[in-house]
Amino acid sequence: DYEVGESVTVMDGPFATLPATISEVNAEQQKLKVLVSIFGRETPVELTFGQVSKI
């Protein structure tokens, strides 16, 4: 299970290999909103559970 505030690594898509912090969890739809730090700015990205891995 994923929790808000948890650190994960993006495994898929254009942000693969980047660390991210979970900002929202939708367990019903198996989706997460995460904040990816790009060029010093936090960018919100919506991903599925399968696109991230716990650190």
Rank of each mutant, 00 (worst) to 15 (best):
V45K: 03
E24M: 09
R41H: 11
A27C: 11
A16S: 08
M11P: 02
V4D: 03
V4S: 04
G40P: 03
E42S: 09
S37H: 13
F15G: 02
K31S: 10
S23Q: 14
F39I: 06
Q29H: 10
S7N: 10
T17N: 14
D12Q: 12
V10D: 00
G50R: 10
S7C: 13
F49P: 03
P14N: 05
Y2K: 01
P44T: 15
L47H: 01
G40W: 04
F49V: 04
Y2C: 04
E3M: 13
V25N: 02
N26L: 11
V8G: 01
S37W: 14
I22Q: 01
G13E: 02
E42R: 06
M11I: 15
R41S: 10
I38L: 10
T48M: 11
A16N: 07
L35G: 02
V8W: 02
S7W: 15
A20L: 03
V10L: 05
A16K: 12
E46T: 10
P19G: 09
S37L: 14
P19N: 13
S37R: 14
S53P: 01
T43H: 13
L47F: 07
A20W: 02
I55E: 08
R41F: 11
G13I: 02
V36I: 13
I22L: 03
E6I: 06
P19W: 12
N26A: 06
K31C: 08
N26Q: 08
S53W: 07
F15A: 03
K54D: 03
Q51F: 04
K33M: 12
V10W: 02
K31Q: 08
S23P: 01
T9N: 07
G50D: 13
E42D: 11
T43A: 08
T17F: 13
D1C: 13
E28H: 10
E24L: 07
T21M: 10
T17Q: 11
E6G: 08
V34C: 09
E6T: 07
F39S: 10
Q30Y: 08
D1G: 13
A27N: 13
D1F: 14
Y2L: 05
L18V: 05
F49Y: 11
E6Y: 05
V36T: 03
V10P: 02
E3C: 11
L32W: 01
Q51R: 04
I55F: 10
Q30N: 09
L18N: 06
E42G: 06
L32Q: 00
S37D: 08
F39T: 06
G50I: 09
S7M: 15
G50L: 12
V8L: 04
S7D: 08
T9A: 06
T48A: 11
V34H: 00
V25P: 01
P14I: 09
A27Y: 15
S53N: 09
L47V: 10
I55A: 10
V34T: 03
F39W: 10
E46W: 15
S23N: 08
G5A: 03
I38A: 09
P14H: 06
T48L: 11
L32I: 08
I38W: 13
D12P: 02
T9S: 06
G50H: 11
M11E: 07
T21C: 09
P44L: 15
T9Y: 15
E46H: 07
T48H: 11
V8S: 00
V45S: 04
P44F: 15
A27Q: 12
F15E: 01
E6M: 14
T17I: 04
S23L: 15
N26I: 09
V34D: 00
E24C: 09
E28S: 11
I55D: 09
K54I: 06
E24G: 07
V52M: 02
V36K: 00
E6V: 05
D1H: 14
P44N: 11
E42A: 09
D1E: 13
Y2S: 01
V36N: 01
E28V: 11
V4L: 07
P19C: 14
I22W: 01
V52G: 01
K54A: 06
